[in-house]
Design a binder for these strands. Sequence first.
DNA 1: TTAGGGTTAG
Length: 615
Amino acid sequence: MMALLLLTSPLTPFEMKLESQDDVRLSSSSPSLSRAGEQRCLSLLLVSSSLSQILQSLAFLLKSGLQSNLLVLTRFAAAAAPLGPAATAVAAALLFSSPSLLFYDSFLLNTALRCLSPSPFHPLHLFSFMLRLSLPPNHFTFPFLLKSVAALPSPLVSAALSHAASIRFGFAGDPLVQNTLIHAYGSSGDAGLEPARKVFDETRKSNPVTFSSMIGGYVRSGRSNDAITLFRQMQLACVRPDDVTITTVLSACVNLGALEFAKWINSYIFRAQIPRSISLSNALIDALAKCGDIDAAMEVFNEMPERNIISWTSVIDGLAMHGRGDDAVRVFEGMKLARVQPDSVAFIGVLKACSHAGMVTAGRRYFESMTEEFGIEPRIEHYGCMVDLFSRAGIVEEAMGFLQSMPMKPNPVIWRTLIAACRVHGRLELGEKVTHQLIKEDPLYDSNYVLLSNFYALKRRWKKKWEIRTAMGQQGMRKAPGCSSLELNGEIYEFIAGGEKLSMNPEIREMVEEIAKKLKSVGYVAATKEVLLDLDEEDKEEALNWHSEKLAVAFALLKTSPGTIIRVVKNLRVCGDCHSAMKFISKVYEREIVVRDRSRFHCFKDGVCSCKDFW
DNA sequence: TTAGGGTTAG
């Protein structure tokens, strides 16, 4: 009985019952303490929200001798942990020094771990302390222990240590521990995937959590195709997915832009009667919107009985991505009417919407309302949206002025926005100047040099342009590999830029060459102002043909019937040359081509792009 | 009395 009292909080109905029994004494390790004293200490701790209050509680605790009461100490740790490392250290020191640790059991260990886990040091310390005392953990110990893993310098090492501990204490086959380990390994970067999979394969009794953990690991490492493959295996293994599994799978869907799959999930949720949690609906909205079907996303949103800020933001963002700025603004207003407080992320959405719809006045008003009405301090992203807003609208001076008045240093993204404005609105001198500035800030990013060489090309200064290209070759530029994906008959195909040209399917290779020839014959290079390359640089022109989105489109043209919409998703931004080529392809082959790049949708139809050449 | 997986932007 005494142990029970020690272990529980005096506030739940369960304990109220215990307290009504007169014969129970609070704690034998502190016989002089009154119940009222402990109660007072606990309530003080419960309301402690600052360091000084915590110190006050501490003084009380020491004065009354309560520092040997584990229940009180645990409460103390819980109150102290959110107040930062100093408070946590005091709490940990008290816990470690308490003589009551001799009465210590797994539950208290777990509670202490949970309380101290916001700090990356103490949980492991506590765990090793426990090992020294030879007190065995129970399986609940591991999730608490691993909660802190992400904050440690090497999450992979911590996962491995916990893994070893789980084996040492005989929890290797425990489903809860296995799921926890799969998640811990799967959150430790690419190197963690293999051990995660190993634990996954060793799991005898897989449940939806096991699968969600592993699928989530794949998604976080950018291996979305593997995530979907595993989801299919899950169905073959007759493990019924729940709402969290589906939410995870949907984020794989987003990465791949797999529209058909997202739609299938949408109907599957209905058929399999997966509970429609708010998070699941939110993920569904996001996936449908980002895979290209904004109307289906709206439908999900409209049918939600209950929404949160993420639901609203996902819709606003989706509409903005599709260039439907006015609708996005309407939804934003609807959100305010529904008395949902917009947050910082929601403002990024609505500002983006304004800029895509050319709503300069509205955008400016929203930006001002952030601080004035909602007390949200604009971050660099919000300033970026404003520069974008002015840039798209063609008021380059205003954009420049805004950029210069920012309270923080502009980042490369903002510089590039301004550069795009200069290119589109013919401000070549300014563009060149700003690009030089950008290169100074970010000298190792190859696209920056491409931007500069574009300005030289537009000004027909071929010699200068050639110099840049040579300089680029000499420096070790980092270049993220372009990757595009395409969904066809339920399969998802991925294409890597220039990727193993020789090992490439000869069919695709021939198609790429045929397209290049066909486009040239209708004046593709000469007709565009976006000349990236001189005509004599044939090898470089050749290299451009193997950009991943071109490969994907070539494949789609081969494999789909005439008139089918081609949907491609790219991990980077579409380059100027591909953008121009896509316009031509849409006209020559009479196909609608939808390319989702890193920031928005480009819908190519009849030789024109929906982004109006500004991206 | 303690538990494991998930959703918006950048």
